[in-house]
């Protein structure tokens, strides 16, 4: 009872806030509704017993992605009403394509079959009676069975970082950098000069 009540609460707020994301006039409001949507989706995941995904959704999507969006929206000088101009003309075609795709997926879903042995060979099942939380279950797999993909994911992130630096970093002139070694190497003689000033004539 409580569960289904919570489900309908989360689900309806999720759908409403998703709607608000694309209809709100003010882009900052859109991002705030997006954050609301993420929280409600996280709630749905908790109801499903997938608390790890719920945590990730809050930490990564709300904490990093949405806040980044907020920064971009607030800092960049882009007129969103200009961007949105003319978007309405794509709506009918978009709806048609979306409807066709949805219909196809429903057909596919309705006729879905599993191979007879599929249930027996699911990649990493947790036994129904096990006491493991799914965070623990994931932790047991990531560094053992999925060691290779885990390491590869690290390399992919490294390449992404190199790429971001290569494509955006540029040497600017007139920027003062702190060079600690040079600061330490500086002697008193380089920095200051003691002069005798004869009285009455000024420096």
């Amino acid at each position: 009872m409580i569960t289904s009540l919570a489900f309908y609460l989360f689900a309806s707020i999720l759908v409403l806030s998703a709607l608000m994301v694309i209809t709100a006039r003010n882009p900052v409001h859109s991002v705030l509704f997006l954050i609301l949507g993420f929280f409600n989706a996280a709630g749905l995941f908790v109801l499903l017993g997938a608390e790890f995904i719920a945590m990730i959704l809050v930490i990564v999507y709300v904490g990093a992605v949405a806040v980044l969006f907020l920064f971009v929206v607030m800092m960049l000088d882009i007129s969103f009403s200009d961007l949105r101009k003319g978007a309405m003309q794509y709506v009918p075609m978009g709806l048609v394509i979306g409807a066709v795709l949805l219909l196809e997926f429903f057909t596919l879903f309705g006729a879905w079959q599993f191979a007879p042995e599929a249930m027996g060979q699911v990649s990493a099942p947790i036994a129904a009676d096990s006491e493991l939380t799914n965070t623990e279950a994931l932790g047991q797999l990531v560094y053992t069975k999925y060691f290779l993909p885990f390491q590869l994911a690290g390399l992919i992130l490294l390449v992404a970082m190199i790429g971001a630096i290569v494509l955006t970093h540029r040497q600017r002139s007139g920027v003062y950098k702190q060079r600690v070694a040079e600061q330490f190497a500086r002697k008193r003689e380089d920095a200051m000069e003691v002069r005798k000033v004869s009285s009455g004539s000024g420096a």
Partner: peptide, 19 residues
């Protein structure tokens, strides 16, 4: 994965060969 229950090449191949 939805059909065979696996992402492993060998297991997918075996499942498809059986069905």
């Amino acid at each position: 994965y939805g059909y065979t229950g696996s992402i492993d090449f060998d297991v997918i191949g075996q499942t498809l060969a059986n069905n």
